[in-house]
């Protein structure tokens, strides 16, 4: 006999709670993605002395909704020479990978869907998978420019992942744990951006390259390879790429916040600052990093491909490797080895 109470208490009820928690993360995330595109257009417009979207709704606030509806009702075109299954799977993969990383992000103390021991490794693994969506899209399109874009993206993302890994190792040496909550709590007295400032800079630039954002957006490179890997995509498959890219940007900003900017912790733990709830601090810091993403896009011209590779392998890799050794040396020499 099946014990219904055990089945309900043990499986069904926790299942319902988990689904509710997932929705609680995903729905605000999708809204954030929609308004990040709006923010991007507004910020860049302001920096270029334009107005930006200002027609749909007050201050153009309904513009992302209108864009989404437009994309949703357009026709999805499958190129005749495309490899259909892989072609359809690629945008879904990009979008899914932009969402699943959020499972381990702590928004406040204890506000985390899955508080796993190897949280930072999980995030690193998810971010390294992003390249598959691009590669699959470029190959399945069976067209020249998407293929060139995909090859560029693959080499670029693999290169910058290496220095990102070393930056993460530097933080891990100081913290002594791979759990994201532990990493944030270790910054209670001092955010890691202060002692590890060069690593913060390397990490931020690597996240730009990892998310294929300007000035490293060679995978799209509209002035040379039309639109790169998503050239053949239309309507909602295109929208999925777009949403995946922006969700990934927010995820990377959250990762930067957790590793270097003290997650949900206030600037200093005194009266007016610690009245503000942790989630507000977290969102504020993520927004700050995202603003830097947009600021960079409005400011810098695109890198040339050989310069991009040079920066990744000849500048960031030695620098981050040196900092790993230096940090480990300092931690051992001054007996700061974290114990837990």
């Amino acid at each position: 006999m099946v014990d219904w109470i055990v089945l309900w208490d043990g499986y069904a009820w926790p299942g319902i709670i988990i689904v509710a928690q997932v929705l609680l993360i995903v729905v605000p995330l999708l809204l954030a993605v929609a308004y990040l595109t709006y923010a991007e257009r507004k910020v860049i417009a302001a920096m270029q002395l334009r107005k930006g979207p200002n027609v749909v709704g007050y201050f153009g606030l309904m513009q992302p909704i209108a864009d989404a509806v437009k994309l949703l009702f357009k026709e999805t075109i499958l190129p005749a020479g495309a490899n259909k299954v892989v072609f359809i799977m690629a945008p879904m993969l990009v979008f899914i990978l932009g969402l699943v990383g959020w499972a381990v992000i702590p928004f406040d103390e204890g506000w985390v869907l899955a508080d796993i021991n190897v949280g930072i490794l999980y995030l690193f693994a998810i971010s390294s998978l992003g390249v598959y969506g691009v590669l699959m899209a470029g190959w399945a399109s069976n067209s020249k420019y998407p293929f060139l874009g995909a090859l560029r993206a693959a080499a670029q993302m693999v290169s910058y992942e290496v220095s990102m890994g070393f930056v993460i190792i530097t933080v891990l040496i100081v913290v002594g744990s791979l759990n994201l909550t532990d990493i944030v709590l270790a910054q209670k007295d001092l955010w890691f951006v202060v002692p590890l400032l060069p690593m913060f800079v390397v990490f931020f630039i690597s996240t730009l390259a990892e998310t294929n954002r300007s000035p490293f957006d060679l995978a799209e490179g509209e002035s040379e390879i039309v639109a790169g890997f998503f050239l053949e995509y239309s309507s909602f498959t295109f929208a999925l790429f777009f949403m995946g890219e922006y969700a990934n940007m927010i995820l990377m900003s959250a990762m930067t916040t957790i590793l270097f900017l003290g997650g949900w912790l206030p600037i200093i733990d005194v009266a007016p600052f610690n009245w503000i709830p942790g989630i507000v601090w977290f969102a504020g810091k993520v927004a700050l990093v995202l603003f830097c993403f947009l600021w960079v896009r409005a400011t810098f011209p695109r890198y040339r491909y050989d310069q991009l590779m040079r920066l990744g392998w000849k500048v960031f890799l030695p620098l981050s490797l040196f900092w790993v050794v230096l940090t480990a040396g300092v931690v051992v020499a001054f007996d700061l080895v974290p114990r837990n």
């Binding site: 190897v118 999980y122 690193f124 693994a125 998978l129 598959y132 590669l135 693999v158």
Partner: peptide, 17 residues
């Protein structure tokens, strides 16, 4: 996690490449 980072994230990318 290491299996995914190393094999899926790096080795298989070059394979596919």
């Amino acid at each position: 996690m290491i299996l995914i980072v190393v094999y899926v994230g790096a080795v298989a990318v070059l394979f596919l490449f």
